[in-house]
């Protein structure tokens, strides 16, 4: 069997968003072992944390879109995972951002998420996007607000429980 598909590389002022891969496993494992992942389904065991980067790639293969490993220009080490996400059990296409330890507070999540959102609107032709945010995750809500998103509705997720769905401005509102 032969199958080809592309995971594009996106560049922003300070960041490169590239395909996730096996080389990101240590950063993934460290992130998902920490309490910082309380809001995104963690902490996870080492085994499950490994499955995550594999799952990130599988999502690209199954959906044709997915999340990128975020890196700083000039350094290929992943500092987070940002992108387009729609696993089974999500109500709509999602724009998500998880920054690993030490990468927060620099505007990176906003910068990377904006690039991913532009890709969704300009290249994939999407007309709307949501972000799933735990109401206690004030950092993530602040990023969403900076991106112009606003709370839309409550959703009951099988694993995360009661969670908020925020909606981003559509492509016409951003031009």
């Amino acid at each position: 069997m032969s199958d080809t598909f592309i995971i594009p590389t996106l560049s922003t002022e300070r960041l490169v968003l590239r395909a996730p891969g096996l080389q990101d496993a240590p950063q993934h494992a460290a992130f998902y072992a920490s309490d910082r992942t309380n809001f995104v389904g963690g902490p996870l065991t080492a085994e499950l944390a490994w499955r995550n980067p594999a799952m990130e790639l599988g999502h690209w293969a199954l959906r044709g879109f997915g999340r990128w490993a975020v890196t700083e220009k000039g350094n290929d080490t992943a500092i987070g995972i940002v992108g387009l996400w729609h696993p089974m059990g999500f109500p709509e296409n999602e724009l998500g951002w998880d920054l690993f330890d030490g990468a927060t507070g620099k505007g990176y999540a906003t910068e990377a998420a904006r690039a991913a959102r532009n890709y969704a609107y300009d290249r994939l032709g999407w007309t709307t996007l949501t972000s799933m945010i735990d109401p206690k995750n004030t950092g993530s809500a602040a990023v969403a607000t900076r991106l112009g998103a606003a709370f839309d509705y409550d959703f009951d997720h099988e694993r995360f429980g009661s969670i908020q769905i925020w909606r981003h401005p559509g492509p016409e509102a951003l031009t």
Binding site: G21, L22, R51, P53, A54, M55, E56, L57, G58, H59, A61, L62, P87, M88, G89, E158, R159
Partner: peptide
Amino acid sequence: MTERQAWNFFGTEIGHWMMH
């Protein structure tokens, strides 16, 4: 496991091929 978990696991099966 639930449908949601199994979908994730299936994604992992494919990702395993891509990694290894």
